[in-house]
């Protein structure tokens, strides 16, 4: 009797293994279908890179025919105050006003000549700015 029971158990084991293999194949194929379904319908919400988006928009802004990126690069010239003082003043006022309204704590500085805003935050980003004469510097953004 015990031999018969042992044989039955082995048959059952063999049968289960076959069933499991079939189930695995079915699950695998179904899972694959589900994965592709998830890929298509997935609604991914990604927080935008705030600093990058903001600084691009800021640098592109045009003031009196000069973009801000050009005005900032032009402070490299020794006599820049005689020529773009108004532009720099306008950039300063616009930034400080918008940061105050939006309650941002941020600062922008370039070449040690211009610094707008103040912040205690340590997060620091650098963006290349072309300078007249074929060189470049970095605009430092904090906050």
């Amino acid at each position: 009797m015990s031999k018969n029971k042992g044989s039955a158990a082995l048959y059952a084991l063999g049968f289960l293994i076959v069933i499991i293999v079939i189930v695995i194949i079915v699950i695998k194929s179904l899972t694959a279908i589900n994965i592709s379904s998830v890929k298509v319908n997935l609604d991914i919400s990604i927080k935008s890179d705030d600093t990058g988006t903001w600084v691009l928009s800021f640098l592109r802004t045009n003031n009196n025919g000069n973009s801000h990126i050009q005005s900032l690069g032009s402070v490299y010239a020794e006599n820049y105050m005689e020529n773009i003082e108004t532009d720099i003043g306008s950039i300063k006022n616009t930034l400080e006003k918008s940061w105050r309204i939006e309650r941002f704590s941020r600062s922008v500085s370039i070449l040690g000549k211009i610094k707008i805003g103040d912040t205690t935050q340590d997060e620091r980003s650098l963006i290349d700015i072309p300078l007249p004469g074929g060189t470049k510097t970095a605009l430092e953004i904090k906050g």
Partner: peptide, 9 residues
């Protein structure tokens, strides 16, 4: 934007 400004200079 960097290269457009560089072209102006």
């Amino acid at each position: 934007l960097y290269m457009e400004t560089a072209l102006q200079y």
